[in-house]
Structure formats: C-alpha cells, structure tokens
Amino acid sequence: MTTTNDTAAQKGITVALDGVSFSYGETSFHFDAEFAAGRITAIMGPSGSGKSTLLNLIAGFETPDTGKVLIGGIDFGNAPPSARPVSMVFQENNLFAHLSVEANVGLGRSPSLRLGDADRAAVVEALARVGLTGKEKRLPRELSGGERQRVALARVLLRDRPVLLLDEPFASLGPALRDDMLDLVAGIHAEREMTVLFVTHQPEDAHRIGQDVAFLDEGAIAAIGPADDFFDRSGPDGFKRYIGDRGGTVAGSQHIARKRT
C-alpha cells in the first residue's frame, strides 16, 4: 500500500473517483471522474462547489460515504492519509513553525525525523532544487510566504509520491511570484511526471500550467477535458459563466502560456 522511497522517481498514476458520495452538513457531493496519469489538471469552480473536498477525499482527510477512491487502480478510500501515494500542499500551515526548514523537509523522509547521511544529502538537494540553498537552518517565520511554499515543495520532492495535490498554495502570493511558483511546479512535473491536481481560482494559472481542466459545480464534476477546449469559445456554458468575460483576456494572454517550461 505504501509507496517506496528508493526508486529514483515515481511516475504518475491515475486517480479515479468511482461513485464517490460525501455529505458535509447540508451540502452533499457526488464525484465520478478519472484523472489521467502524469498530467496536470486544474480544478476550477465557484466557492463551495467542492474543489477542496475533492482533494481532501483523494488525500484522505475526508472519507467517502460511499464509492471508491482509486489511486493507481487500488481503492484507498479508507486508508489513512499518510498511507496514500499522495502529497498535498495546502494554502497555509504547510510547515511546523518551531522546526527548521531542514527538519520540515526531512519529515518527508522520516515522520520521526530520524535521518541518515543520505537523507540529509537528499534534503539539501531538494532545497537546492526549489532555490533555497543556504536557508536550511532558518525557521519558517524567517521566510517569505513564497519561500515557505517552496519548502513545502521541497518536501514533496523528498516524499516522492506519484500524486501531487495543490490546494491553492499560491493564492496569497503576488502575480509575478505566483507565476514563478507555477513554473517551479511545472518544472518538477517535467522531471517526475507525477499526476498533479491543482485547485485555482485564476484562469491564468490554469492556462499557464494546466494540461486538463476539471470544472466543478454544485458538488459534482460538471466538465473535464483538455485545457485548450475550455478556454476557447466552445468551453462549457457553466465554465464561461464562472470565468465571466475574462475568457477573452486569457485567450489574449496566451503569450504568457508559451513561456512554459
């Protein structure tokens, strides 16, 4: 059930929700979808449509009332979060405030922080990959918001799980910084080819790195398909209503997308 850490890189695997239903107070959700292996899917939709719930179900923070959560073909619906082949980056609180950058990343290798020399080297390497060389000993409060999310991504590298879930981790960053972070994610994806699901409210983000888009509405997946289909005039009606007249500007700003790594 658990993923192994000794393989060099975990290639992405499919994530599928098979008749998953879940209720949350008055609201109920129903998900039926398959996310292709090794692709980046942008999860979009109005507030309360179930984007975070979808990710929480896959990560194991919520348990479905019925249905299966298939990751690589295996039902993980009742497995605890740490036993799933999944890493997740939240909008905030990705780091333990009292632990150094190094320790926070090292937790990705050993939850009890028993690290050997090889593990330490891997931590240094991962931090270098996200551009934080030399900040190993810092505490999270000594870092900027963007740097903190980079630490979280370094830990994702170290955990090396085939599925990466991003729950608006860059929402509170400025536009330029957000683009940098998205490019970092795209770069990591290019190396590891994991399956990435990322929640975002910004069509630009979806357009920048999303290969597919899943559009959620009223607790269900209303549409799913290649990103390009969504952003041209033939996109689903609900999606067009959701992004409003920004569709045009996104299409007009395609030159940004071409900067993709």
Partner: peptide
C-alpha cells in the same frame, strides 16, 4: 495548524 500536516506525513503517537 498541525492536524492535517501530521496526518499527511504520518506523524503520530509518541513521535
């Protein structure tokens, strides 16, 4: 602050 992170990373019990 820590609950989900501990769950995700499998940090539990005495650790």
């Amino acid at each position: 602050r820590h609950e989900r992170l501990c769950l995700a990373l499998g940090i539990s019990g005495w650790t």
